[in-house]
Amino acid sequence: MKFAIQVNEGPYQHQAADSAYQFTKAALEKGHEIFRVFFYHDGVNNATKLTTPPQDDRNIVNRWSELAEQHNLDMVVCVAAAQRRGIVDEGEAKRNGKDAENIAPGFRISGLGQLVEAGIQADRLVVFGD
């Protein structure tokens, strides 16, 4: 079965980011397909590579990147939410005159159309938020 996942909350703020990760991982382990993981609202903060949590804590951002690499996940960050919160890739940095980018590996910045498409293409859309 094809699942799409929506994440509305940032890491270390609310359990939603953890729940979404655990669900995604469990679905992949059961042989399901993850069509896309869409990061919306504060969920875009899951995509900054500048986080450095203590070594004995889970690294939520790296955990997503590793899962994406292992399973070739499509992880999309909403561009409007990302611009507000300072999540920037190279293209966005250039376009908006910023001197740095901070998007973590495996994430890409795109528009809300990607969420609509995921809702249409996937058999189930599962939402995690506050």
Binding site: M1, F3, A26, R124
Partner: peptide, 10 residues
């Protein structure tokens, strides 16, 4: 468990 959550969603 989470696997059960996935089954329920499916």
């Amino acid at each position: 468990d989470y696997a059960g959550f996935v089954d329920l969603a499916a």
